[in-house]
Design a protein around this nucleic acid. Structure first.
Lengths: 190, 190
DNA sequence: TGCATCTCCCTAAAGGCTTTAGGCAAATGG
DNA sequence: CCATTTGCCTAAAGCCTTTAGGGAGATGCA
């Protein structure tokens, strides 16, 4: 018959990420993936353990892409400049790749989590905070706060949580970053 | 045969919410629900339009429960006291009812969204902010910031995003609320 | 080049979830 | 007490996942 399709875990993962951006992360299906490669479903199971495995791989891909972008954005920046840059990386990535962004939120098992780029994310946020004057434990608190704001804002904005309200969300975003910068420069003692 | 099962959209929705808390919101299935009522699957379709309809109803239920709790918590409180109370409502609800909390994040259509308790949430946050001295547009920015932090924190904490790190997450939560209070009392002008 | 082997994709099949169509019996009420 | 309504059931089709086993390309060595 025809020549082979050239399936690969790599290619399948990338195609899965694109599929996620098109139809949503939780609509990613092994069947649809097979259809796109014009191949029978069972064929994918030589390259993927199962559906969950596919999702995990997409998640890892997204986390890596995000970390790479973040590293890029932080290079040569400090203080509020760095804060804004990092924040925009997350927001822009979510807008450009909603499915991948959702994938990055996928609950990973301990093994996968350890092998993921998740660690780099925390490290970069911590690096950014060196531009502010925080004690060690406060740095951790701040890392978590920033993570929460970035993720929470992006997630609500994309979910339509801010729709139909008066001020532009871009406006709010700017002011929120101003506020965070002010807060970090003036971190309250208990 | 035996007597009727007494199915109701109401009862199905409540059972669906419990099911969500047990197995996760996205594992909620019409089939499993039927099993729990010891009834054939097709029978549920007289009470539910479809699977999506079920999820929507669970989401509306969760939003209402959350709003009710929030209203309760805010009664008679102001300032930081109110801020803490509201924040804890979200966090505690998510811990007690993870499936419902996930449901509350379910993307609703415009119709359902309008009929939801989502509006009350925004109103209560706005009410809470009256204890601080913010101009009108800044109030909206602050509403969005608080929403982002609450949702983002709870979501990351529950997703295990803060696991294995040194300081206790309760510790961080307290300090984050301190920080937000300080920020709101000292909101920066552009 | 020819053949053995390995790799890759396919056929087949079982099991689960969703959703629609149509039927019979239990509840309701006049 | 019977007529009608209502509620749950059987049947069936469609789609997704996952496993088992087979045949035909691709590869490499003689």
């Amino acid at each position: 018959m025809a020549t082979r399709a050239g399936l690969t875990t790599e290619r399948l993962t990338r195609a899965g990420a694109e599929l996620a951006d098109e139809v949503g992360f939780d609509q990613v299906t092994v069947s649809e993936l097979a259809r796109r490669f014009d191949v029978k479903v069972a064929s994918l199971y030589s390259h993927l353990k199962n559906s969950h495995d596919l999702r995990t791989r997409i998640a890892l891909l997204a986390l890596k892409e995000l970390a790479d972008r973040a590293a890029d954005a932080l290079a040569g920046r400090a203080g509020k400049d760095a804060l804004t840059a990092l924040a925009n990386v997350y927001r822009d990535y979510a807008r450009e790749h909603p499915g991948r962004y959702a994938a990055a939120q996928f609950r990973l098992g301990p093994e996968a989590a350890a092998a993921s780029a998740g660690v780099r994310h925390a490290q970069m946020t911590r690096a950014l905070l060196r531009g502010y004057d925080l004690t060690e434990p406060d740095q951790t608190h701040a890392v978590r706060l920033l993570g929460s704001v970035f993720h929470g804002y992006v997630s609500l904005e994309m979910g339509g949580g801010f729709s139909h309200s008066a001020p532009d969300t871009q406006d709010t975003w700017t002011r929120v970053l101003d506020a965070l910068d002010a807060l970090l420069r003036n971190w309250p003692e208990p």
